[in-house]
């Protein structure tokens, strides 16, 4: 497919040390209304896949290990 990539700084970052997605946790992925998070099958950790963040924070608030940090997207800062 011939889409050009658009660079972007992801507002959602996940601390791989704290993330327990590899233990079966899917909390952040489940609670994201925009469905922008995924679990990387190679690392077993969550990451931001789509740059469509509403900075609404359930991912950070509900994460049992507080591994998720959300920044206000640059365009709004």
């Amino acid at each position: 497919m011939s889409f050009a990539e658009n660079p972007s700084e992801f507002p959602v970052t996940i601390d791989a040390e704290k993330c327990i997605a590899d233990k079966g946790c899917t909390v952040c992925v489940d609670v994201c209304p925009l469905d922008v998070l995924r679990i990387n099958p190679e690392t077993g950790k969550a990451h931001m896949r789509y740059d469509e963040c509403w900075y609404c924070l359930p991912c950070a608030l509900d994460c049992p290990t507080k591994a998720v940090t959300v920044a206000i997207p640059y365009l709004l800062r």
Binding site: I20, K23, G24, C25, V27, P64
Partner: peptide, 8 residues
């Protein structure tokens, strides 16, 4: 961690 996920 697995036990914790189970509790959730």
């Amino acid at each position: 961690a697995e036990r914790r996920v189970a509790i959730i």
